Simulated assay, not measured.
Amino acid sequence: MTTLLLILLALIAALVLWSAWVSRGVERWIPMDGRQVEVPGVRMHVVEMGPADAPAIVMIHGILSQLRVYTYALAGRLAKDYRVVVMDRPGWGYSTLTGPRLDLAGQADAVAAAVAALGLEKPLLVGHSMGGAVSLALALRHPQAVRALGLIAPYTQPVDTPPEPLRGFVVPAPLRPLIAWTLAVPLAMRTGKAKTVAIFAPDPVPEDFPIKAGGALAIRPKAFLSGCYELAMAPEAMQAQAPRYGEIAVPVSILYGRQDALLDPALHGSKAASEVQDGTVEMLDGGHMLPVTHVDATETWLRRVASGS
């Protein structure tokens, strides 16, 4: 029994060391791109682009993602005419938590605090997927902080079960740290490509997505822990948030891919647009990762939203 226990402990220690080694390697391939801004509970990693005196656009990403999903192509195009600020949401990418993990409301507060710290005056807030949920929370909690929302494939409504590619993150809280530092990294390396294909479907995954768009950062233990927390937190938070959408007075524009395989465009797009006071929804042929796979169409739509036309 003692021998078996020692073997088990040695195996766990080896997996922890290997996971840490892989994480450091990924971070060398994908280093921090910008700087951190200190706000209550988190040091927000932000990248600033474009003319400092231009109208501002703030962009926040979805689950298992980080700010490179925007800097991949879209943010640079918009930065020709706008002050574009892309942010890693709390707990993701290189945004470092200095307090407890933050639910939708807490993340909205952190984004609003970062907007204020950067001196941005009523930016257009762009949120993709779970970033859309945070954007809606911000509009409810800080209605004077932004001039409008531009939501790309947003998560907006309560759902009973998470999308199939994300179900591996449904893990009891006491087990999450152990799994994060032992099994999560090898499993992500083994199954990550197939899950990424499912998230992008029916659009193809660009070959340079792991590095240029930061996709490889999702294999780190940090990402596993954040993913588990958000999938566990989101249903209750959304149950409280969704009934209040009628209070949102800023314009809310939504873009969805008709073939989105992760979230239902009618439920999360059309329904949400009908519930806010000033909401619109546009559909195009495509999947969930529109900022990466349909850059031209997303840019055209966002420029219309930013100009208020």
Results as ranks from 00 to 15, higher is better:
residue 218 A to S: 14
residue 104 L to Y: 00
residue 63 I to W: 03
residue 78 L to N: 01
residue 122 K to D: 03
residue 280 T to I: 05
residue 40 P to E: 10
residue 3 T to K: 01
residue 212 K to M: 13
residue 31 P to Q: 04
residue 295 V to A: 06
residue 298 T to N: 09
residue 133 A to E: 01
residue 166 L to T: 04
residue 105 A to R: 15
residue 180 A to W: 06
residue 79 A to F: 13
residue 72 Y to Q: 05
residue 245 Y to F: 10
residue 60 I to K: 03
residue 122 K to M: 10
residue 290 L to I: 05
residue 152 I to W: 14
residue 123 P to A: 09
residue 263 L to S: 05
residue 84 V to N: 10
residue 96 T to S: 07
residue 129 S to N: 04
residue 1 M to T: 12
residue 301 W to E: 15
residue 148 A to M: 06
residue 159 V to W: 09
residue 94 Y to V: 02
residue 148 A to G: 10
residue 215 G to M: 12
residue 30 I to T: 01
residue 48 E to D: 14
residue 103 D to I: 12
residue 179 I to F: 02
residue 127 G to N: 03
residue 212 K to Y: 13
residue 45 H to D: 15
residue 196 T to D: 13
residue 198 A to K: 11
residue 17 L to A: 11
residue 301 W to V: 04
residue 251 P to E: 10
residue 121 E to D: 11
residue 260 D to Q: 03
residue 60 I to E: 08
residue 82 Y to Q: 00
residue 24 R to Y: 11
residue 207 E to H: 14
residue 230 E to P: 13
residue 9 L to F: 07
residue 94 Y to H: 05
residue 220 R to K: 11
residue 108 A to Q: 09
residue 199 I to W: 13
residue 173 A to L: 05
residue 188 A to F: 04
residue 105 A to S: 15
residue 19 S to T: 05
residue 257 G to W: 08
residue 42 V to M: 08
residue 8 L to W: 07
residue 223 A to L: 05
residue 53 D to A: 09
residue 230 E to W: 08
residue 114 A to W: 10
residue 281 V to L: 13
residue 266 A to S: 09
residue 175 L to A: 12
residue 234 A to P: 12
residue 35 R to Y: 00
residue 261 A to M: 09
residue 216 A to F: 09
residue 214 G to D: 02
residue 129 S to C: 04
residue 211 I to R: 01
residue 163 P to R: 05
residue 148 A to I: 14
residue 245 Y to K: 03
residue 121 E to A: 09
residue 73 A to E: 15
residue 202 P to Y: 12
residue 174 P to A: 01
residue 40 P to I: 03
residue 146 V to S: 08
residue 181 W to H: 12
residue 3 T to E: 13
residue 194 A to N: 15
residue 68 R to M: 14
residue 139 A to M: 02
residue 158 P to I: 09
residue 99 G to A: 08
residue 175 L to Y: 12
residue 272 A to T: 15
residue 136 L to V: 11
residue 20 A to L: 11
residue 190 R to P: 14
residue 309 S to L: 13
residue 211 I to L: 12
residue 200 F to C: 00
residue 231 L to G: 05
residue 141 R to F: 02
residue 148 A to L: 09
residue 170 V to A: 00
residue 256 Y to L: 10
residue 32 M to K: 10
residue 3 T to V: 12
residue 57 I to A: 08
residue 198 A to P: 14
residue 207 E to P: 13
residue 110 A to K: 00
residue 109 D to F: 06
residue 40 P to D: 06
residue 2 T to E: 13
residue 272 A to Q: 06
residue 265 P to F: 12
residue 226 S to D: 14
residue 165 P to G: 01
residue 59 M to N: 07
residue 137 A to G: 15
residue 125 L to Q: 07
residue 233 M to D: 12
residue 231 L to D: 05
residue 283 M to Q: 09
residue 169 F to N: 04
residue 255 L to K: 07
residue 153 A to T: 04
residue 287 G to M: 10
residue 81 D to F: 10
residue 209 F to H: 06
residue 209 F to W: 15
residue 46 V to G: 07
residue 240 A to H: 03
residue 82 Y to L: 00
residue 138 L to M: 15
residue 228 C to I: 03
